[in-house]
Amino acid sequence: MMDELELLKKDWQKKEAYLPKLSHAEIHKMIWKKSSSIVKWILIISILEFLLPHLLYLLPSAKTSWAIYESLGMSNYIIGLTVVQYVIVFYFIAQFYKRYKEISVLEDAKKLMRKIIKTRASVKYYIIFSLSLLFFAFVSAAFAIYISEDLSVLFDSMHTEVPQNVSPERLKRSFIWSVLILGFCFTAFIGGIYFLLYGRLLRKLKKNYNELEQIEV
């Protein structure tokens, strides 16, 4: 009996007759079309991710929060933190760019996938860093409220009156808790959205990479 796979191989060679044939002109038109590869998407999305948090500072509400920080005597602290933040952000961007440049379709499949995952990982670490910083800012604010003597400055900066019918102790406590809870929800919300999108983008690639890894076990 002829081996089934030999039969298959033979038939496969015959398939050429049925394949589409593109003309020189048709192929020529294609080479200047825009790529929609995963690497291209990673680049676009990553640039957006690097930019977006910085655009948030332009919102009017950012000015209000700055006023709140000032009222709590945190402005120097925040400036210092911002400088550190930018140094780290530039490190992440440089690392991302370096890894992005190393991606080459000429590598073997496994190396190519590993490089894409690594490139994407530098953005992932950047996001984790940004989220931690965001949460840390909330925690610091809560701490500043905890050590501040007079909450009226805080209320002034938000253009509201200090409620008179609540004891200062209670007011302080509820303030600290609201800041912490708000901080946690906000960070979790942004993180949730981010990791959902991130997971979608690389799902297929990761599955294939794991499959290749498993072959080697």
Binding site: S37, V39, V105, L106
Partner: peptide
């Protein structure tokens, strides 16, 4: 030979359906 590699890499890794 070179085409096999690029074509498969694109199909497995780069292409998003």
């Amino acid at each position: 030979t070179w085409m096999y590699r690029v074509a498969l890499n694109t199909a497995i890794t780069m292409y998003r359906k």
